[in-house]
Design a protein around this nucleic acid. Structure first.
Length: 571
RNA sequence: CGGGGCGUGGCUCAGCCUGGUAGAGCGUUCGGUUCGGGACCGAAAGGUCGGCGGUCCAAAUCCGCCCGCCCCGACCA
């Protein structure tokens, strides 16, 4: 493709509503334009990248046994009422009426439609498994769309659903998709991690999120470089090596005034005790019961872990107003000593000695407090958020925390939808059973944004070749110079003949602009026809990612391009 | 939905407080000079100042309502 014949409106400055780097660069490089809040148009370069991503997805899906379909975007209310989600889904579900005043939605996800399709067509276990997916636009009326393609209202998604006869087969389907997703994101040239994710209300431990590692990621993930364990920070378990010996207690409990202190840091500063020497006590409402949760002063309580530890149906922090009645003090002076509530302590608290705790008396704390002497927790459990350096639950190596962007999510659904929608088949004994389902999503447009969050520098985007709009840009430095222009034209023709994925910047503008545009858009390889051609007959190849410059004669060019491309592609 | 901010040419923004002529840079068009990091000279086009209403001799500027967009919190690929 010739640059002059393509619609690539690049910009020197980003519009002010672009907040994060991928949004700015997507916009400046002319890949997208905004139509409305959270709604974007894909321009030719943006679409090319999207296509490359979806081509990789299609290849992965078909290799691992899923087939593509295309489901309707517009879905009638009745189907969503069957699953109960018409009521449950809330305002993210865009609802509207047709001319007969019949209600519809633009699907934000397609479990209902897919289940409806399969329940009407699949009656026998002999027809299973079925694994279908589609790629297309979705609409979620996000309360707050932001970050360009990262969190749009309309976005492109691949959503897939598997139907199996039993758990065992469902696990196989799940594993296949897990493998497919790993392959897909590797092919996209992304640095990512599959992490164990929270399964929420559905239960089971069959859910993985695929996170692209980037500092700007919205989610914190914990990972172990030694054994590959990775988990969402909400879910990450913490391994505890056995302490060599339990430390001795050295002091006795003593009540001290701590006027005006509330937060751990304030108590820490006032008493000149490090936060790690303080036990933080929080009152939590689990179902209808209040319990006290204890973590080290420098740690954060993880409500989800606590909820699982006590098997609660719901969980929330108690309101400050509830605390005096339960403990005798306001938040800030609450402690476990003499407390009438059930106490759940983080595992780490067991080994703390001579600790500082709230005295259940406003503006007072106890020092020199010890477990079993001054108070006894009902339960020790892992109830805090993991931090960098915590031991891996699998191999005990120190884990690191990185930030990630969720680009894929696979989930074993069980019978949640098949049961509600009465999607059943007859097994080999003639018994009617609901399908065991799995659901598998990839945020396609978000993947593009994530790739840019991961690959960029001050000059612009650094695309992995497999998803770059074009792999190679050919630049003629000066179109008025006949030698240069003719050589460039010749090379362009030859490159097309050889099937290279090339765009030729043939615009009659200053060299500075062309080079700036090339860096901005981030084509992985750039071939420049310029002064070195005239002087020495040499072409320049520049690698966007490394800045490496390689000179080549015309006959050498293709071999060198091929070698460079290979070196940049995922193995 | 709650809290904060913004809306002036295609883009970035000044002007508003203290009412009276709508401005700059970038981009665009034309002519010329340039040609390896968003070049230079000259000329030009382009604006219902988000909308409606009000105050006033006079409103981009003051007041009210509405709309849109962005940022901070709960949802999610």
């Amino acid at each position: 493709m010739k640059f002059s014949e393509t619609f690539i409106p690049t910009l020197k400055e980003a519009p002010k509503d672009a907040e994060i780097v991928s949004h700015k660069l997507l916009f400046r490089a002319g890949l997208i334009r905004k139509l409305s809040s959270g709604i974007y148009s894909y321009l030719p370069l943006g679409l090319r990248s999207i296509r490359k991503i979806t081509d990789i997805i299609r290849q992965g899906m078909s290799t691992w046994g899923a087939q593509e379909v295309l489901l309707p975007l517009v879905v009638q209310k009745e189907l969503w009422e069957e699953s109960g989600r018409w009521q449950v889904y809330g305002k993210e579900l865009l609802r509207f009426q047709d001319r007969h005043e019949k209600w519809f939605t633009i699907g934000p996800t397609h479990e209902e439609v897919m289940v409806d399709l399969v329940r009407n067509e699949v009656q026998s276990y002999k027809q299973l498994p079925v694994n279908l997916y589609q790629i297309g636009p979705k609409f979620r009326d996000e309360i707050r769309p932001r970050f360009g393609l990262m969190r749009g209202r309309e976005f492109i998604m691949k959503d897939g659903y598997s139907f199996d006869m039993d758990e065992e087969h469902a696990n196989i389907s799940y594993q296949r998709m897990f493998d497919a997703y790993n392959w897909i994101f590797r092919q996209c040239g992304l640095n990512f991690r599959a992490v164990e994710a929270d399964t929420g209300t559905i239960g089971g431990n069959f859910s993985h999120e695929f996170m692209v590692l980037a500092n700007s990621g919205e989610e914190a993930i914990v990972s172990c470089s030694a054994c590959g364990y990775g988990a969402n920070v909400e879910k990450a378990e913490i391994g505890y090596p056995q302490p060599a010996a339990e430390a001795a207690t050295t002091s006795r409990i003593q009540k001290v005034p701590t006027p005006g202190t509330c937060a751990v840091e304030e108590v820490s500063a006032f008493l000149k005790v490090p936060p790690a020497g303080i036990i933080k006590t929080m009152i939590v409402k689990t179902g209808h019961e209040f319990v006290a949760a204890l973590v080290r002063g420098d740690r954060e309580l993880n409500l989800l872990k606590l909820k699982n530890a006590v098997n609660a149906a719901s969980i929330e922090l108690a309101k400050d107003g509830d605390c005096p009645g339960l403990t005798g003090a306001h938040v800030g002076s609450i402690g476990p000593v003499g407390l009438k509530l059930k106490i759940i302590a983080d595992t780490e608290v067991r080994y703390m000695r001579d600790a500082v705790v709230g005295a259940n008396d406003d503006n007072f704390h106890y020092t020199g407090v010890n477990i079993d002497i001054d108070f006894t927790p009902a339960l020790f459990a892992d109830i805090r958020n993991a931090v960098s350096g915590d031991a891996c639950p699998r191999c005990s190596s120190p884990m690191g925390i990185t930030r990630g962007i969720e680009v894929g999510h696979i989930f074993k659904l069980g019978t949640k939808y098949s049961a509600k929608l009465h999607a059943e088949f007859l097994d080999e004994h003639g018994v009617s059973k609901p399908f065991i389902m799995g659901t598998y999503g990839i945020g396609v447009s978000r993947t593009l944004a994530a790739a840019i969050e991961q690959g960029n520098d001050r000059d612009g985007i650094i695309f992995p070749p497999s998803i770059a709009p074009y792999e190679i840009e050919l630049v003629a430095i000066n179109m008025k110079d006949r030698d240069i222009a003719d050589t460039a034209h010749g090379l362009y023709t030859k490159m097309l003949e050889k099937g290279l994925d090339v765009i030729y910047d043939d615009r009659d503008i200053s060299p500075g602009m062309k080079l700036k545009d090339a860096d901005l858009i981030g084509f992985p390889l750039r071939v420049v026809v310029g002064s070195r051609l005239k002087k020495e007959g040499l072409l320049e190849i520049k690698v966007r990612k490394t800045g490496e410059v390689i000179m080549a004669t015309q006959p050498q060019l293709y071999e060198k391009l091929h070698a460079l491309r290979t070196s940049l592609m995922p193995q």
